[in-house]
Amino acid sequence: MLDPDFLAAIGHSARLRALVLLEQEPATTRDVAARCELDADEAAEHLRLLANAYLIEPVPDGGAQPLWRTRVTGWAGLSDLLAATAAPSPTDGA
């Protein structure tokens, strides 16, 4: 059975984007905010939820601004799968 915290953590598009980003390379909260088009407080909250679900972790000796990284890989594939199976929007002409 999947953990409810895990499902909640990956259930938001901004958190899934952050996981894909952090899978590619470690990043600070500020980097995640900029690349995911979030303000710093939103990014910090999303990263807190991901960390609480044990999906990301700080990089040891990341410096004054901690760098975050994923604990496991495969998030880009999940993101692609979800995008491919999403219902078409009304503007898609379907």
Rank of each mutant, 00 (worst) to 15 (best):
Leu49Asn: 12
Leu78Pro: 04
Arg17Asp: 12
Ala87Arg: 14
Glu23His: 01
Leu21Ser: 08
Ala87Gly: 06
Ala9Lys: 01
Asp61Ile: 00
Arg69Leu: 08
Thr29Gly: 15
Ile10Trp: 02
Leu55Pro: 10
Arg48Trp: 05
Leu81Ala: 14
Leu22Gly: 11
Pro66Ile: 05
Glu25Lys: 14
Pro26Gly: 03
Arg15Val: 03
Leu7Ala: 10
Pro88Gly: 04
Gln65Pro: 03
Pro4Lys: 11
Ala51Gln: 11
Leu49Tyr: 14
Asn52Met: 10
Gly11Met: 05
Ser13Val: 15
Asp39Glu: 14
Gly63Thr: 01
Pro60Lys: 08
Pro60Trp: 03
Leu55Gln: 08
Thr29Val: 13
Tyr54Trp: 14
Trp75Asn: 08
Arg69Ala: 03
Asp41Ser: 10
Gly62Trp: 01
Val32Gly: 02
Arg48Tyr: 06
Leu19Met: 10
Thr28Ser: 15
His46Phe: 07
Asn52Asp: 11
Ser79Asp: 12
Thr91Ile: 03
Tyr54Asp: 15
Phe6Gly: 00
Arg69Glu: 07
Asp31Thr: 15
Ala8His: 12
Leu81Cys: 01
Leu81Met: 04
Asp3Trp: 04
Ser13Gly: 13
Ser89Ile: 06
Thr85Ser: 12
His46Trp: 00
Thr70Asn: 04
Ala76Lys: 15
Tyr54Ile: 07
Asp3Thr: 00
Leu50Phe: 02
Gln65Phe: 11
Leu50Tyr: 07
Ser89Asp: 11
Glu57Met: 09
Leu2Glu: 05
Gly93Glu: 01
Asp80Ser: 14
Ala53Tyr: 02
Pro90Lys: 05
Glu57Pro: 02
Thr91Cys: 00
Leu82Asp: 08
Glu37Met: 11
Ser79Pro: 00
Leu19Lys: 12
Ala27Phe: 10
Thr28Tyr: 06
Trp75Gln: 08
Ala40Arg: 13
Ala33Met: 03
Asp80Trp: 13
Leu2Ile: 08
Gly62His: 01
Val59Tyr: 02
Ala43Arg: 08
Leu47Gln: 05
Asp3Arg: 08
Glu42His: 14
His12Asn: 07
Ala84Phe: 05
His46Ala: 02
